[in-house]
Design a protein around this nucleic acid. Structure first.
Length: 601
DNA sequence: TCGTTCACG
DNA sequence: ACGTACGTGAACGAG
């Protein structure tokens, strides 16, 4: 830890020598996790190789700040564990554009995810530095994060307040800050060797780094919140939740979120509950409560029974609370000083390679526009959403080489409806909308590996009907089942890992190898979107991109250019996958995201 | 921390 | 031999 200018000069000499020997590991310590929180500060910047670490106390300002900033700009090749975070920290706090640092960066978290994409809960190592170091560097590698949590506690601080409150010269803090770069530097060659051993192509690694940078740029931009709308909405929904909680309380349910209380009260009222949770408790979820409240899946009265007032109140209280607290109030609590939220976009999150997004931005209600109405395009802009048409079915047709599906997609044209096409293949030209729904269910059942019982529950059709539909489905598209078997066999011969078309490793669980069909489709669909996102940047669209949503890109563009921009998005998302056309459709809305879901603004 | 629930594609 | 819907993030309650 340099303390004098002489020390800083020694650090400088080390940097110039070390960067000749190989990449420099880089890390930062900060006051918290939300880079865009107005009170966020950068505390230290660490540099290291496999042997040495330098902790530069950026927070002290002056020479410390300028040496750290200059050093980052001169590292040339750098290693960062979870690069997007440090890119944004340095971009925001040190004025180093992430566009400058990203091309020099290798992200060890990305490398680890390509070796094994599973989270610890799924039997993998995960992508945290500690378990990765234990696996690839030294089983006794210290857990610097949990070690620091203990130090925070001993200082009367918490996990939340510790990062900002711990004195800058605390020895454990500095030691662990330095250790993280050394671990990252040692992790890198081990992961690189492993990727080579597994035959993971460098092109895939490079593609993931491009995507990581694009996602970080979107995170930096964030999304504008309509505060004059979201604030009152949060209050209105809170009041609504409170009204229904009061109704529930009249039936003895003090906490509507307590399954035990709700179940006990319903049973006490003479209702019979039959479904059970995995842990054996009586289920009281939405699927159980809606029929008791005489409501269908769209919350419309069925007229089959007298509604149970408690079930109705619990449903409405929980919905209002979730929409109000998680979404509306959640946006208000996460604003930066420009009134924007910056959800973390993790490009490699799921075991299938799918991306994830924080702050609920991937889960906003789509059946009603009131929550999405709170997210705005920039002043003078409009929202544009461009999504792939039936991407997973198209990907399935391409990967499993499903002859009659491919024929449909190839000849069908722009407005092609795969589910109606399937219904007609089986039922003839007289196929009805109801047939379409049935075979749509059967199609998704195939992609997801669902059983008769589940499909019947999901579609509302009888088990006999579903069973017939699935049989008919297999007859017209026999390649799907065969491909599933083939992929399971290939995975078995490859240590229970299926390798996707892009070279992605998809480990299977031994007791549910049928999931390979879903993994192959979901991961290929993700890579199609990823490829499209790279095309978009090439077409100059990155400045308009706001959020990836699995099969969709949400954008904001100037009203007068919207038609041109939308056409460009469609062009970037249009391609061919093994002869199957991949088709996208843009929708131009108004000022708010909700306008694409029926809101009039 | 774990289990449950609920929002999405 | 058979059959299993897949993938997330966030909040709350219970222990």
């Amino acid at each position: 830890m340099p303390e004098t200018t002489e020390d800083l000069n020694e650090f400088w000499r080390w940097l110039y020598e070390a960067r000749e020997r190989g990449p420099i590991a880089l890390d930062t310590e900060t006051t918290g996790l939300n880079v865009f929180n107005p009170s966020f500060r950068l505390r230290t910047v660490q540099f290291g190789d496999q042997r040495d670490a330098w902790v530069i106390q950026y927070e002290r300002g002056g020479y410390f700040e300028s040496y750290a900033r200059e050093a980052v700009q001169r590292t040339q090749r750098v290693l960062i564990h979870n690069a997007a975070y440090d890119w944004l920290v340095l971009d925001r706090c040190a004025g180093i554009p992430l566009e400058d640092l990203a091309p020099w960066t290798t992200d060890t978290r990305t490398l680890a995810a390509l070796c094994d994409p599973r989270q610890p809960s799924e039997g993998g190592i995960g992508t945290a530095l500690k378990p990765l170091s234990a696996r690839w560097v030294d089983p006794a590698a210290p857990d610097t994060q949990s070690g620091l949590t203990a130090v925070f506690r001993s200082l009367g601080l918490t996990k939340e307040t510790g990062w900002a409150g711990i004195p800058l010269d605390h020895p454990t803090y500095l030691l662990y800050a330095g250790l993280d770069v050394i671990l990252t530097a040692r992790l890198f060659p081990a992961l690189r060797r492993e990727l080579a051993r597994l035959g993971v192509r460098n092109e895939l690694v490079a593609y993931e780094h491009e995507l990581a940078r694009i996602c970080a740029v979107m995170q930096r931009r964030g999304l504008l919140v309509d505060q004059d709308y979201a604030g009152p909405l949060a209050r209105r929904l809170a009041a609504e939740a409170e009204r229904y909680r009061a109704v529930a309380a009249r039936y003895g349910v003090i906490k509507v979120g307590s399954g035990d209380q709700v179940a006990a009260a319903l049973v006490g009222m003479g209702e019979t509950l039959t479904e059970r949770t995995d842990a054996g408790a009586l289920k009281t979820d939405k699927a159980v409560l809606l029929p008791l409240a005489d409501l269908d899946r769209d919350w419309q009265r069925i007229g089959a029974r007298e509604p149970n007032r408690l079930a109705d109140a619990v449903l409405r209280a929980k919905r209002a609370a979730k929409w109000g607290e998680t979404y509306a109030a959640g946006f208000m609590n996460k604003l930066d000083d420009a009134g924007r939220i910056h959800p973390v976009i993790t490009p490699l999150a799921a075991r299938t390679g799918r991306m994830s997004v924080t702050d609920g931005l991937h889960q906003l209600p789509s059946s009603d526009h009131i929550v999405r109405r709170a997210i705005l395009a920039e002043p003078g802009h409009v929202k544009i959403s461009t999504d792939f048409q039936a991407i997973e079915m198209r990907v399935l047709a391409a990967l499993a080489d499903v002859r009659r599906m491919k024929e449909g997609f190839t000849r069908g044209g722009d407005a092609f409806d795969i589910h109606m096409y399937t219904a007609k293949l089986i039922r003839g030209e007289g196929a009805t909308k109801r047939d379409r729904k049935l075979f749509k269910g059967a199609g998704f059942g195939k992609v997801y590996g669902g059983g008769i019982t589940t499909l019947a529950r999901q579609t509302g059709a009888s088990e006999a009907e579903i069973s017939q539909a699935v049989t008919a489905y297999d007859r017209v598209f026999p390649e799907i089942k065969r491909a599933g078997k083939r992929w399971q066999r290939q995975a078995f011969q490859n240590g229970m890992v299926f390798v996707s078309a892009t070279g992605r490793r998809l480990p299977l669980d031994r007791d549910r190898t049928y999931a390979v069909t879903n993994y192959a489709c979901q991961s290929a669909a993700r890579d199609v979107l990823g490829q499209a996102m790279i095309e978009m940047e090439g077409a100059g669209l990155l400045e308009y991109m706001r959020l990836p949503i699995h099969d969709e890109i949400l954008a904001s563009a100037p009203r007068e250019d919207a038609a041109d921009v939308a056409r460009e998005f469609e062009r970037c998302m249009t391609m061919s996958l093994y002869g199957v056309p991949i088709v996208a459709e843009a929708e131009i809305g108004g000022r708010s995201w909700g306008s694409l879901y029926g809101a009039d603004y």
